[in-house]
């Protein structure tokens, strides 16, 4: 009987930890989303649009989930350092230059990246900023 109680307490606490972890992640995600949205409005919306629709051929849309998924390990670097190459988004080529944002700290990059990849029809889920930091250290 005693063993049974101890076992169930153990099990319960594991479940509790998992549940609270998930909660923590949901809370973090909400935080990132709301801060990320503010950063997006201030720094990105002018080119990429309120709904991520882009601006003609001058700036690509952020609605191409396939592109964002295949390049998900590069997004942090693109956001921080800008880009000057040819991207194919929704089957169209874009080759204008995106500026760098050296003023964005790693946490800012993480937040705006999480916002973009979970808005405009994208659903990549949460990425913690420690992981984004590592990505940023390995930018090419």
């Amino acid at each position: 009987m005693r063993k049974y109680i101890i076992n169930s307490i153990f099990l319960l606490s594991i479940v509790a930890i998992i549940v609270s972890c998930q909660n923590q992640e949901t809370i973090d995600l909400q935080n990132y989303m709301s801060n990320g949205k503010d950063i997006y409005k201030a720094k990105c919306q002018n080119c990429h649009g309120e709904n991520g629709e882009g601006l003609g051929q001058l700036a690509p849309p952020l609605t191409d989930s396939v592109f964002l998924k295949t390049n998900k390990n590069r997004l942090a670097c693109i956001i921080k350092n800008g880009a000057n190459e040819t991207f194919t988004i929704h089957g169209k080529e874009y080759k204008e230059k995106m500026p760098a944002f050296p003023e964005l700290a790693d946490i800012d990059v993480a937040q705006v990246m999480v916002f973009v990849t979970n808005s405009f029809g994208n659903k990549q889920g949460f990425v913690p900023y420690t992981q984004v930091s590592t990505q940023l250290q390995n930018c090419k």
Binding site: Q45, N46, C47, L55, K97
Partner: peptide, 15 residues
């Protein structure tokens, strides 16, 4: 043309 701040918004609206 290389303005990365207010011009894209201005011209998005002017469009």
């Amino acid at each position: 043309t290389s303005c990365t701040t207010i011009c894209p918004t201005m011209h998005r609206n002017l469009m």
